[in-house]
Amino acid sequence: MIWFFLGSGLFLGWSLGANDAANVFGTAVGTRMVRFRVAAAVASLCVLAGAVASGAGTTETLGALGSVSAMGGAFTVALMAGVSVTFMNRTGIPVSTSQAVVGAIIGWNLFAGAPTDPGVLVKIVTAWAASPVIAAIVAIGLYGLVRLWLRHTRVHLLGRDALTRAGLILVGAFGAYSLGANNIGNVMGVFVPVVPFETLHLAGLNVTGAQQLFALGGLAIALGIWTDSYRVMTTVGEQLYKLTPILAFIVVLAHSITLFLFASTGLQGVLRSVGLPPLPLVPVSSSQAIIGAILGVALVKGAGAGVRLGVLGRIAAGWLATPVLAGVLCFVALFVMQNVFQVEVVAR
């Protein structure tokens, strides 16, 4: 039964792999700078590493928002988040899994009568609004640095091409690691308090129950990358963004840094040690970070006038609509699960 309930989280992971891996390797694969097999192999390994090694931070934040106390509840929360993402995707708005999961958790809180910590909620919403802005600022800085470097080094066009290919693979690896670290909380976070996995002792290493869950989620993301991300990657690379390979490098690096900033417990410690305020560990949207980075590059290249404000408005509307829809759907589904299917969704 555990595996059936986990299925909704694994489905969410598969969907994340199929869609969000395109943010990391889409342009590289679409422009044929990097082969799909190389991209998929690097992304799968790094997403798994990020999920297992650094997934705890964002999961803790989601846990502080609402700790789902029964397996049936966790199943419903993950399933309704997935349904909301699928529905919103059809509207053409770049929707965030993070926002759907948070909405669904709040739906569970309302259903279970558990309090929602407004401080944590404000922290999460602030991170959502800040992540595209941070990505844009980082992209602008990187664009300036890359331009300066190109002017001073006068690398041959072909040498530049080789460096860009290597760079795209490296930032893709970093991006996949950050995606795993930041977004595994969305995929498996709600199951952490309720799945009774014992700590495993493997070759002198202790693998906690949460890490086992993150590994499973990471594998689901990897499966999504291998089975369904090629189509999305070529769409991103050829139709949507039309970035040159160097701009793709800048945009993916800015996106990866942003996700990493909101996921790394180590970085949080470093910021604290130098007296700077740490960034909250919150699962943010990979797609919105990418959009922020592209906007940043567009602005600095003087193409800001071409930015369609209507599209930005739709994205902002998505920030509101996705969690509300997920929350409402989750509330209704929990009611149905409890009263129709007699499944325990809140621990007594």
Partner: peptide, 16 residues
């Protein structure tokens, strides 16, 4: 990766 850089250097030399 080494192959990629070697190939690129060879092609640079050919263009020159």
């Amino acid at each position: 990766m080494t192959l990629l850089f070697r190939q690129s250097r060879e092609l640079e030399a050919q263009i020159d």
